[in-house]
Nucleic acid binder design. Structure first.
Lengths: 229, 229
DNA sequence: GACAAGCAGATTGTCGACAATCTAACAAGA
DNA sequence: TCTTGTTAGATTGTCGACAATCTGCTTGTC
């Protein structure tokens, strides 16, 4: 028998497609935090009945990017500065853990994939496609979690990533300026290829803190704006 | 104005009640891993239409205790030994992190609540109510996560806990013998009241490993049984 | 007997309509 | 003026029915 692993075939339910559409809209910031999702309106726009739409919404509520209040509506989650702090501090812990687990598992395929994803980030950066830049950067960082061979960790990280992506997208949208062109991931990739695990863990922590400060400043701005209303 | 903070009122949707019912059935092991959930049958038993039932199922799928295959059905998640290992190793990391965050926040209310939950475990143990014993023990361990003041961590821990509770319940059910009567939480509580944070973290790790071995043995049994089919 | 095509039953996915609930505006009374 | 009760409109929650898909069996063919 030929050695040929087929990937899973496409999801054929409307629900799955709706989930993908909504998630993308939220994570790219097209739907703003706090905004209400009107079921009737959205179902008409998508040419779909409310049943699969509602099921899709339940999934995203559990995913943590929507919140639901019975008989009141479903809303895009609000972003508070504290949320970003919390997400980031947990992310640090998970990253350290992932590096520890993935470290002995590194092989040629790992390094190849690392380069591939790194290249994808650089390409998105050159193309000035900020949305894609965020996506690819998170995928680059996700590699260690995929390689850690711990399904629960991976799942946890993916949930966390949803929010981080959303935070970054909002940030980018707000400050509407060109993205830094220099390659901030160079040392990260180099360290993951190296022999010093502690150094890699340390850098993951510090590199994160870099973007973090900007993001926090943005979040604090949000807070202020919210308190005025 | 009187200082009186009302808690949130009860969920009034059928969906929420269905979620609670199903979750309880799964976490206590009444619904076994791999078992298929027939929508029509369940909706008739609950005297409810399929719409809220399906929405409830979507939530539990995202919660990680159900899995769904389009047009095939929704099933209670299968438990593999690897899953338990993964969950436990991540749990260790989260516990250490939680202790670190919660440590400076400890106050009288914390200690009181600690004693209260500890007492609940002892009571369930005396009553030989194994299900409740598992619940209360997890609630005892959850306190540090609640006190850590990190919403993302808390949420993550709660998701993880769902599965741990399920694993323990299955384990208990399988070996159908009286639960150890001695109090394994005594030192844990004492350490959380003490002054040595590192010691508390260390104990959390080791105490976990205790039950862990038993649980793993059970899981390996499951694996074997599954491979025979 | 082996195998593919096709059919029947069961189950999941989706739809449109109805019921329950909330919100906001307005009226009535203190 | 402030509070309380009422009502209309909009929106969410739920229902029963229909469509799409899967599974297992039967049938026919070689």
């Amino acid at each position: 028998m030929a050695k040929l692993d087929f990937g899973p075939i496409a999801d054929t339910t409307r629900r799955a497609e709706i989930v993908a559409l909504l998630r993308r809209a939220i994570l790219t910031g097209q739907l703003e935090p706090g905004q209400k999702l009107n079921e009737l309106r959205i179902s008409e726009q998508m040419r779909v009945s409310r049943a699969p739409l509602r099921e899709a919404m339940r999934e995203l509520v559990q995913e943590g990017i929507l919140t639901s209040i019975p008989y009141a509506g479903t809303f895009v989650v609000d972003v508070a500065a504290k949320d970003i702090i919390d997400a980031y501090s947990l992310n640090k812990v998970l990253d350290e853990f992932a590096i520890e687990l993935a470290w002995p598992q590194r092989d040629q395929r790992f390094f190849d994939e690392l380069d591939r994803r790194h290249e994808a980030v650089k390409q998105a950066t050159r193309a000035k496609d900020t949305t894609r830049q965020i996506e690819t950067a998170l995928q680059l960082h996700g590699l260690i979690h995929e390689w850690a061979d711990n399904s629960v960790l991976l799942e946890t990280w993916q949930r966390l990533t949803s929010r981080l992506q959303m935070y970054f997208a909002l940030h980018q949208r707000a400050r509407n300026e060109p993205v830094p062109a220099e390659d901030v991931h160079e040392t990260y990739v180099a360290l993951l290829k190296g022999a010093d695990m502690r150094a890699a863990q340390r850098h993951a922590r510090e590199h994160i803190d870099l973007d973090f400060e900007e993001l926090l400043a943005y979040a604090r701005g949000l807070e202020k704006r919210a308190s005025k209303n």
